[in-house]
Simulated scan of single mutants.
Amino acid sequence: MTSVIQSPYSSEQIAAWLRGLLTIAWADGNFDEQEKQLIASITQDELAPNVAWDSLEVITPEELAAVLGKNTPTAENFLRTAVMVAIADGTYSSSEDQVLHQLCQALGEPEDILSALRQTLTDPQPLNPALAAPKAPAADVLDPLRDWLDELDIQDPRVARFLCKMIPSQCPFERDVTLFGRKIVHIPPLCKINPLYEQLVGIRFRALSYLADECKEDVSPYI
């Protein structure tokens, strides 16, 4: 897939960006086969078609900073997409928190946003007490996080395609799981699980608009 837009990112930066997102996806140990196939498809078809999937490995914070720079717009935009990957399923685990904490330090970015995540998103395991922040009303702590995510600057069609594929196109319907005619669990809509779901949908819409308006691409496959 080609684009008329000249990306501000080099191929090396995109490859490092992708490895960073994979590092987040693998952080909680719940990287299932479906997720693997999804990211493999995005990798091979759109983000880095010349990079073999089997060769992709996690990246250290120091390696990522060496490629993306420290305290740069590129580093900040990467962190926005990394946070998005971490919260896409509505949960924020302590392992994801640890990885993002290390990335923020290496990339020279403030950790205020992580403090908001620690206070609002569900985590089945207790967060690191040394990193935990005092509790505050959810409506208050989420506002800076929403504003920060809204500042994601989409300047690369490969990143835009990743966002369109990674973020669901609509809030999945709630449903009951039954066994032998008896309800055993109720699954609520994702938009109710994830308090930032509407923000993610907004980012997806901006990515679609960028591909359609700036890159003149056919976005029907993502709708």
Rank of each mutant, 00 (worst) to 15 (best):
K192V: 13
V141A: 07
A86G: 07
L190V: 01
A82I: 04
A130F: 12
D32V: 03
E57K: 14
R118D: 03
V67A: 00
A52K: 12
I24N: 02
S7D: 13
A15M: 08
V159W: 02
E46I: 08
Q13H: 03
C104P: 02
R161T: 11
P110Q: 02
C104R: 00
I87T: 03
Y222R: 04
C164Y: 02
K216P: 05
P144M: 15
Q6T: 11
L145W: 00
P134Q: 09
Q102T: 11
S94I: 00
S55Q: 13
I167M: 11
E217W: 15
L107K: 05
P61H: 08
S93R: 04
I59Y: 05
E214K: 11
P8I: 13
I59S: 01
P195H: 11
D123R: 06
W53P: 10
N50V: 01
L22E: 07
V159K: 04
A66C: 08
R175D: 05
L56I: 14
L163C: 03
L142C: 06
G202E: 10
P8H: 13
P221M: 15
I42S: 00
A160Q: 06
C104G: 08
V51I: 15
D54I: 13
C104N: 04
S169G: 12
S10Y: 07
P73V: 07
W17A: 00
D112I: 06
P221H: 12
S11R: 14
K165W: 10
S220C: 14
T43Y: 03
F78G: 00
L38W: 06
E12H: 15
R146P: 08
G202H: 14
A212H: 02
S93Y: 08
Y9G: 05
A133R: 04
L145R: 00
A48V: 12
D147H: 12
M166A: 11
K135G: 06
S7I: 10
Q44H: 12
L117W: 09
Q44A: 10
I5Q: 06
Q34K: 09
V201N: 05
F205M: 04
L190Y: 01
E174W: 00
V219M: 11
Q119G: 11
G20W: 08
H101F: 10
K192C: 14
I184N: 07
T120Y: 04
E96T: 11
P144E: 14
R204F: 09
S209I: 06
Y9R: 07
K183D: 07
W148H: 01
W148T: 00
A15E: 10
P221S: 15
E63N: 13
T2R: 15
K192A: 15
Q13V: 07
